[in-house]
Design a protein around this nucleic acid. Sequence first.
DNA 1: CAAATCCCCTGCAGGC
DNA 2: TGCCTGCAGGGGATTT
Length: 277
Amino acid sequence: MPELPEVEVTRRQMAPVVLQRTVVRVLAGPALPVFPEGRGRLLRRLPGRQIEDVERHGKYLAFRLSDRSALVIHLGMTGRLVARPISAQCGIRPATDRHLRLVLEFSGPGPGLAFYDPRQFGRVFWVGPMEPCKRLDRLGPDALVITASDFFRRIRERQAAIKGLLLDQKLLAGVGNIYADEALFFAGLRPQRRAGKITEENCDRLLTALRRVLLQAIAAGGTTTRDFLRPDGNTGSYQEALQVYGRAGKPCFRCGRPIQREVIAQRSAHYCAKCQS
DNA sequence: CAAATCCCCTGCAGGC
DNA sequence: TGCCTGCAGGGGATTT
């Protein structure tokens, strides 16, 4: 399930495929999940534009186009971008391409871009030049960019469990269930701790742990629990480094006590009752 | 505004 | 073996 590291790995692998290339054709599957801004607009506006940059903010990818518009993609839970060989560029066949939602074909040689999304939680939309984008504008600072003082300021008055706030994209963009649990473990904080009761020192430790976990996960090519595959078709390897996520009942690597699992903020949270307080 | 709840969707694990 | 249930989860909409 793509969180910040998986989206960043996707960005790095797709950038060489799409940069400086001009879109000539756009194919959309029947279940292309677009925001209400409109599917027709998306399909009409892309051809003729060149992709000049691929940026990431939180879990969103933005393909910046030559007229300053952008194609924005959120991978949702099961979304995946793949370089699509030219030989496959003959339309979307419902039988074999059941989960294929969008294809961009480019001028010249080289593969196209394909967006697969079995569970349809992903989103694709087009943002015009200088047009404000609600979805992107309401995101908080990226988790790899936010400063310690800003992070502390954003959580200090809050009553909710810290775990839920880490998942709140308006507060901090990019963190999902896996890395929230892992960061809290390394910071020694229980997921249910009231955010406002965390000292500034512990808040710093949490952000440091979060950054470290995210960077190491990027270096490992992301985490593959069940779904995630990189654009190159390989799995990530950070699942081998997970300390608590998905380890309910198994012994803590640090103290040997069984890892607890509890629902917090409508999500499963995993933690060690001895190592985290 | 903050917080909680529900819902979207499909693949797959677990139970019998 | 095969069927069925329920869970996984990001985040938007709605409610409190």
